[in-house]
Write a protein that binds this DNA or RNA. Sequence first.
DNA 1: TGATGCGGCTGATTCGATTCAGCAGTGGTA
DNA 2: TACCACTGCTGAATCGAATCAGCCGCATCA
Lengths: 329, 329
Amino acid sequence: MLADVAAEAGVSPTTASYILNGRADEMRIAPATVAKVQAAVADLGYRPNRSARSLRTRRTATVGLVSDQIAGEQYGSSMLTGASLAARELDHLVVMGESGGDPELERLLIEEMLERDVDGVVYATRTARTVHLPQGLRGVRSVLLNCEDLDERLPSVVPDDEGGGRAAVATLLAAGAREVWVVGEDPVPEATAGPRRMAGIRAELATHGLDVAGLVRCDWSVTEGFEATSRWLAGGGRADGLVCMNDRLAMGVYQALAEAGLRVPDDVSVVSFDGSALAGWLRPALTSVELPFTELGALAVRRLLDPADHGGTDSVPMRVRAGGSVRPA
Amino acid sequence: MLADVAAEAGVSPTTASYILNGRADEMRIAPATVAKVQAAVADLGYRPNRSARSLRTRRTATVGLVSDQIAGEQYGSSMLTGASLAARELDHLVVMGESGGDPELERLLIEEMLERDVDGVVYATRTARTVHLPQGLRGVRSVLLNCEDLDERLPSVVPDDEGGGRAAVATLLAAGAREVWVVGEDPVPEATAGPRRMAGIRAELATHGLDVAGLVRCDWSVTEGFEATSRWLAGGGRADGLVCMNDRLAMGVYQALAEAGLRVPDDVSVVSFDGSALAGWLRPALTSVELPFTELGALAVRRLLDPADHGGTDSVPMRVRAGGSVRPA
DNA sequence: TGATGCGGCTGATTCGATTCAGCAGTGGTA
DNA sequence: TACCACTGCTGAATCGAATCAGCCGCATCA
């Protein structure tokens, strides 16, 4: 207890409190007194009671993180890692909840977090998309992670998918590809990754006077990638560069290419998005534009706890992680 | 505030408190009074202040979860999912921290959680292993998740790797395999998964009068699996059944078999451990003995919050997730 | 008729910090 | 010598619930 520390140091709890809160100068506490209190703290191994403090200050040194999916494709969890580390650096802890996409559970989780007076809430989605801020978070300090609310001007942190699209194409063009096909589309209307990557892809091709040579439609799964690509190849499809919308899809593409007797990268160069572990497991390793999930998570927490935050969207750059799937020029 | 509710209902805060804590019967509050208070609660949208409650009760309806790694190979995050869901069912939230294996950070995280009066701590590791309970958790209510402390008799929750090993072999034997090789070993002395699976594998083979035909040594990564298996095949290695110690490794094995012109499952049946998403992505889909991470996480939290928990280790069964990598008998 | 018991409720204290308002003592100034 | 300013510290209230120890009125019983 603070009272014990004060007694041990021979001062009042008030004085001890000021010293422990770094207000010694402001309150002109004598250096000797500060030293006495600090000695008492060390001596007694004093740890403040956070509940008591929170009761007065309404702050808990705790941030909430609600997500639709944390596990699954190993993405969400990297955001958590980043959030956890950034929170620690700022002397906070992360209270997390996974809604599984259930709005009712999401509501409950948010309510529970607010009851516990979290200092703010990070609202995250597994896939980049637009959302509407849940009712329960209106008026609550919050940051959107991997998603955006286009109506409000809420602080949000997303990957720079358009820049990623440009980088993917730049990699192919630098390797001499000229016939660039895109594999995958985004069937979810709210999803932002697909359209933005597409815009970047087109923009970069345009700087070389090119356009997308063609689009293989399929959703972002291994099996769909395999089947759609197989059909495309069977129909005489050909390209010297393929941009796959994510790594899983690219795995299916690899399988289809292999069955058709085409070699990566000798016959066709492949780049993809995600930069997941899977990219490194394929043979040859897949060159992939990395989703910076750890940074996204960390940045979201930093912005949440930054009183001077300006609001608006931060787009975090996506870097190319080179594998062996692009033929050297 | 509770006082507002009491005022609105025309009773004392004491009475309101008893009612809200389900002690109306015990305190023989008249049903009419109970109704008045409940109406006031609904009317005012009253939510208790958890900090105030915690200050008195020393309980926070919050559990800590410290892990060495949460992200990464998508395993840890499933434990989190299970923990989060189980916590919600018991009206708790999860405060999580990832130490990255750094003992100092781990110490800090535990300290911060204890300062915040978590009702207990789940101590988790990404890979199944033996550990020593951190100093900071001595005397603290805690449950080990995916690890065990062999010295103490602490409550811990782990997968039944030995049963998993038996199940893996049973699957191969049922398909007629007789020459069963095992790929992978565990280079980490504290790791428990490898030896236990091995014991199960041997035990199941023994019931058929068989033993492991041979062991391909390598650690549990795609590239190592590929290289070690390639060498083994090049040296004339042959088997009708392969047990791979995990799915990543099995992916490397697939690659090596493909390069050697061997077909799964026609030439060789393959089973593996993990039951990860990756298993489903391979062609043919990999038959894999599933690590029940979600259940492990949920069970750990339930035991943590069960005052009647008996201590000791719970081994959660591992089920075979059938793919197409075992040739039908 | 007084003691006893019980149903139904409440006053006052407590948890452990933060913080406002203010109080001694000292030295300087008019 | 009265006034003031400043240094260095403290008393007491406060945050919002939980809970112990009763209190009042009425029915029951010897």
